[in-house]
Each structure stands twice: as structure tokens, then as C-alpha cells.
Simulated scan of single mutants.
Amino acid sequence: MSNSLGRTAGQSLKILWWQLAWIAAAALVSGVIFGARAGWSVLAGGGIASVWTAYMAFTLYRHSLNRGASLSALTFVTAWLLKMAFTIGLLVIAFRSRVLVPLGLIAGLFVALLAYWVWLAFGLSQRKPAASGSADRGKG
């Protein structure tokens, strides 16, 4: 994608995959150590938290298709309010569920948010893949 919203949407999708990988790993570890119910709870909590990233990536991508012609501060505030309402609603349902462990839900939320902020804090989106070194051989 050639516009900045498209690149930002692409970065949001990379962050989403990063989050999902860490959530899955945490759910697997929790499931092995504390049992399947705890693992599913971590997965549910992390999934709820990753809805934030997925929704914003979708919003950015949708607006990148028309080069941001209809994008405004109101659009971002509205998207933020919708994702917060959706997330709070999902959390209320999850915490009322007798199937999920509340501490596991919180752990899943924590892992997803930690993965998100680690990505941003350490600039993982700025890192370039390691070069093979063949291009630098002729320089001296």
C-alpha cells in the first residue's frame, strides 16, 4: 500500500500477529502448568484484548482504501469508543462465565497488552531483517 494509512494498518496487523503468538504461548504454558481451564481463560482474555488491535487495524485499512478522505479526529474517537464498549461488554460476559478463571482472563489481558507495548517500546517495526552480507562484500 502506498499511503501512510495503509502502512499503519499493515503495522497494526503485524502487532496483532505478534500479540496472538504471545497469547497462544502464554495460554499453552498456563494450560500445561495450571490446567486446560486456565489455558482457555488466558486465551479468552488475550483474545478480548487483541480485539483492540484488530479493530483499529480494520478501521485504518478501511480508511486507507479511499486515502483517508473521510478520516477525521471524530472517526478515531468514535472507533476508540466502539472498541472500548465492545471490549468492556466482552469482559463483563467473560467474568460472569463460570467456565473461565478470572485470574486467567486478567493474565491474558496482561500478556496481550505487554506484547503490544513491547513491540512499540523496542521498535520492532523499525528493525530490518538481517542481510545476507553478499551486498557488502565488494565494499571496502
Score class of each variant (00 low, 15 high):
Leu109Ala: 06
Val32Glu: 00
Val42Arg: 03
Thr53Phe: 01
Ala24Ser: 12
Phe76Pro: 00
Leu82Cys: 13
Gly39Thr: 02
Ser97Gln: 14
Ser41Lys: 05
Val29Cys: 02
Arg127Ala: 11
Trp22His: 12
Ile93Lys: 06
Gly123Thr: 03
Ala54Val: 03
Ile15Lys: 00
Ile106Val: 14
Ser4Cys: 14
Pro102Trp: 12
Ser134Val: 14
Val92Thr: 03
Ser2Asn: 05
Ala135Trp: 09
Gly39Leu: 14
Leu124Gln: 00
Ala107Leu: 09
Ile48Thr: 14
Lys128Phe: 10
Ala121His: 09
Ser70Pro: 10
Arg7Cys: 10
Ser134Asp: 12
Gly123Ile: 07
Ala36Trp: 15
Val42Tyr: 01
Phe122Gln: 15
Gly39Asn: 05
Val111Ala: 05
Ala9Asn: 09
Ala49Pro: 02
Tyr55Ser: 11
Gln11Val: 15
Phe58Val: 11
Ala54Trp: 03
Trp52Ile: 02
Phe34Ile: 10
Ala26His: 06
Arg37Asn: 09
Gly45Pro: 06
Phe58Met: 14
Ala36Val: 04
Val99Thr: 10
Ala36Lys: 15
Ala73Ile: 06
Ala85Glu: 13
Ile33Gln: 07
Trp18Leu: 10
Thr75Ala: 06
Ser72Leu: 13
Leu16Asn: 11
Ala57Glu: 00
Arg98Pro: 01
Gly46Thr: 06
Ser72Arg: 13
